[in-house]
Design a protein around this nucleic acid. Structure first.
Lengths: 138, 138
DNA sequence: GGAAACGATACGCACCTGCGTATGATTTGT
DNA sequence: ACAAATCATACGCAGGTGCGTATCGTTTCC
């Protein structure tokens, strides 16, 4: 993959490479990628409803249900009816969910660090902020 | 999307954002994303066989056939039996294919530039080379 | 020169994904 | 108080994707 390829191709290549390297890590921790995504989202704050959670992580709302069922069965998340609106279910991490997420996240960070080997810290920082800019830019 | 999210999430977010912005451009030029990927690969050099081409762009070899059928029907690529190995078909761009690819590519570069607005040239360069590093790192 | 490997092609299968529909419980607007 | 909107959930459909299998022509290797 070359520096002057399309930016989209570069992002796709980097993302695919990372995802491949992270897959065994997730497997070792007994989580699918989407399960990890859910835990990550919840670690940043409980979701006021499943619909909002689905939109946050850009996952199909009807499929999120089974995903949450599995996570709840493992005791990593809980669904509680919102007292203010009993149609909605607030989703949050359990203590075990938070622990599990922290463990997986740190393992994933190690993989990333290995992939970033050779790039000085300043470059890594620029990379992160430029990617965030790209992800958020209109 | 936050700077200190997982790198994989950042790449995915940036890639998705770019892909969404580029989709209308591709449509306007009458190409699907995969068709553009094929043209891009061939613009960098003809493919010695369809199998090799499929591996280069990481596309399913059985589906590549229909993709090439469509491109060939539009006169953008040609399949020629390799004289040295008549099982294989060499695939290359026609002149029209090269022109079409150049036009789409430049339109895509404009979209990228718009997405990169606000980032100085040095940052863009670091971004590109860091992404290439990530995409190629073992 | 005959067997095994290989490339292009066609086809089918399993999985994932987004999307639409339906239903029951609950809230909201008038 | 009653109609319309909303949320969680279940279900199905269509499209895309990777993977395996089969066939046919061609090449490679004993």
């Amino acid at each position: 993959m070359n520096e002057d390829d399309d930016l989209g191709a570069l992002c796709a290549g980097a993302g695919r490479n990372l995802a491949e390297a992270e897959r065994p890590v997730l497997e070792r921790h007994g989580l699918s990628m989407w399960q990890y995504v859910v835990l990550t989202a919840l670690a940043a704050g409980s979701a006021p409803s499943q619909l909002v959670l689905a939109q946050q992580i850009r996952y199909d709302k009807t499929r999120l249900i089974a995903l949450l069922d599995a996570l709840e069965a493992e005791g990593l998340v809980v669904r509680e009816p919102d007292p203010a609106d009993r149609r909605a279910r607030v989703v949050h991490l359990t203590r075990e969910g938070a622990t599990r997420h922290a463990a997986v996240r740190s393992a994933i960070r190690e993989v990333e660090d290995r992939k970033l080997a050779g790039l000085p810290p300043e470059v890594r920082q620029v990379l992160r902020s430029a990617l965030a800019h790209l992800a958020n830019s209109v």
